[in-house]
Every structure is written in structure tokens, then in C-alpha cells.
Amino acid sequence: MNEIVRVSGIRHVFPDGTNVGIKGIDFSAEQGEKIAILGHNGSGKSTLLNTILGIITPLEGEISVFGVNPSREYSKIWHKIGVVFQNVDEQIIGPTVWDDIAFSMRNYGYKEDQINDAVENILMEIGIYHLKDKIPHYLSGGEKKKIALAGALVMKPQLLLLDEPLDGLDPQSKTYILNLLINKNQEFKMTIIFTTHDYSTAHYIADTIYTLEGGKINIKR
């Protein structure tokens, strides 16, 4: 199988002096794999995701995503990645739900009819078609989470990064989204990496579970 992500021995110092290191075994993700990263608040889960995205440039360590260093050659890989951050309010930027979901496709130059089909399909799949003309910030936290997920999935990304994706969702929506992710993963061999502090969620969906504790990364399954 193709290796999509490899991270080993990274250390990052934030501008305020906070030092976050992730030592231990290498973190790796292969094509089509579903990976959960379990850890408490402040354990470095988001730092790891941001390093994979190339938003953070670590002081030490090796990192490769789709064979390149993401912090240097991000423009080569970002179109292959879908992401949902912990605070989705910060990533929903389109004036309406429809505009936001179509955002990436428009930026990457897709044709209008392709965009219309793809957005329509994903709205139906995620069950938010009725919200398509709404202004995002008037919606509930759970609905915003679904919009952000739709915006990520509409591009059919090869790698999907999710930071606490199920926070704020009711149990029914959680199960629905988890099953949708499983289907998407099977449909086009999408690699999914998600952070959570809920073991049962990780257990339900993940092929591999990594744990992060005290700056040490371990494999649990």
C-alpha cells in the first residue's frame, strides 16, 4: 500500500515559548487507512495535525506527506487534503452554506456544472440540503460541523484530516457521520486521520489507533 503520511520525532516551539514534542514510534498512514489519534486536551493532537498540514514547521523531526515536506511544498498537496478543524466557525467563510461548500471547487477551477452536481450530492448525503441557502453563522454547532465536513468531502480528498470531528453532534448525527466516513473511505480509498478523546468513537471507526500522552506517541491497535 502507498504511504501517505510519515511523521517521526517532531518538536515544535510556539511563539509564547510552549514546547510541544512528539517522541516515540513513527506515525504513519497508508492509503485507505482510518486512523484515530487519542489523547487528552493539550496532549499535542492538534499540533500533530497542523504539522501534517504544513501550518506548523517543526524545529526537529522528519515529516513527509504525499512524499513532500508539507511546510515547504504545501501548494503541491493541499488540493489533495480535506480538513475539518476543531472550531469550525473559523473555517466556514462562504456567504451561504452553498457558497461555502463550493468554495474549494471554485478556487481550484472546476466547471460550474461540476460544482453544482458535487455540491448538490454532498448536501444530500450529509442531510443538510434544506440549509443550502442559509447564512452559516445562524446555524447550530452541529449543523456547522456538517457544513465544514461537506466542504471537505466535496473535493473527494485523498487525505481527510479531522480535529475532534464529532464534538457538538447529537448521538444520531454522530452515528450517521461515522457511517458516512466509513462509506467514503471504502468508496474512494480515502485516508482518514482524526483526533478524539473518545475511545469508543476511535474503536468504532479506526483501523489503527495512536495514543498521545506526555509527549509520547504509541500505537494501541
Partner: peptide, 19 residues
């Protein structure tokens, strides 16, 4: 954070509105 996510989502200097 907003700028990073905009770039990741392919922002090239225009937020489109379908209207």
C-alpha cells in the same frame, strides 16, 4: 488560522458568491 484554512481550501484571492 483563518488564512491557513483559506489557503488549504484553495483560496487564490477571491471569496466567490454564487449570487
Amino acid at each position: 488560522r483563518m488564512y491557513h484554512i483559506l489557503k488549504i481550501r484553495g483560496y487564490k484571492g477571491k471569496i466567490y458568491s454564487g449570487k
